[in-house]
Amino acid sequence: MLPQRLKKAVTDNPKKVASLIDIVNLPTMLRDFMGQSQSSQLSCFKRVWGYIKDNNLQDPVNRNVVNCDPKLKSILLGKSTIDLTELPPMIKLHFPKQPGS
């Protein structure tokens, strides 16, 4: 019984899945950060989160908050601190819905 549910959860919404894994042309500021001109939303998120971890940008007192360094700042609307809760919607901003897709 469980496998059925599992399958459903992943393929629930093909459009949503596509929006996460479709490779699109990145806006200029993201290109500098990612070092590549094309990427998907999912791998972009993973890259940013990996960057935060690698550079120890999480606030030592409240690990839910990230203190952005200049490079990170440039892609997160220039904010100096950001809550981890905000991260996925922030990334999503760079991947606007494509008309007609």
Binding site: A9, V10, K16, V17, L20, I21, L42, K46, P88
Partner: peptide, 10 residues
């Protein structure tokens, strides 16, 4: 679990 599923749940 697949990356997509993990991410969309998060």
């Amino acid at each position: 679990i697949p990356d997509i599923a993990a991410y969309s749940t998060l």
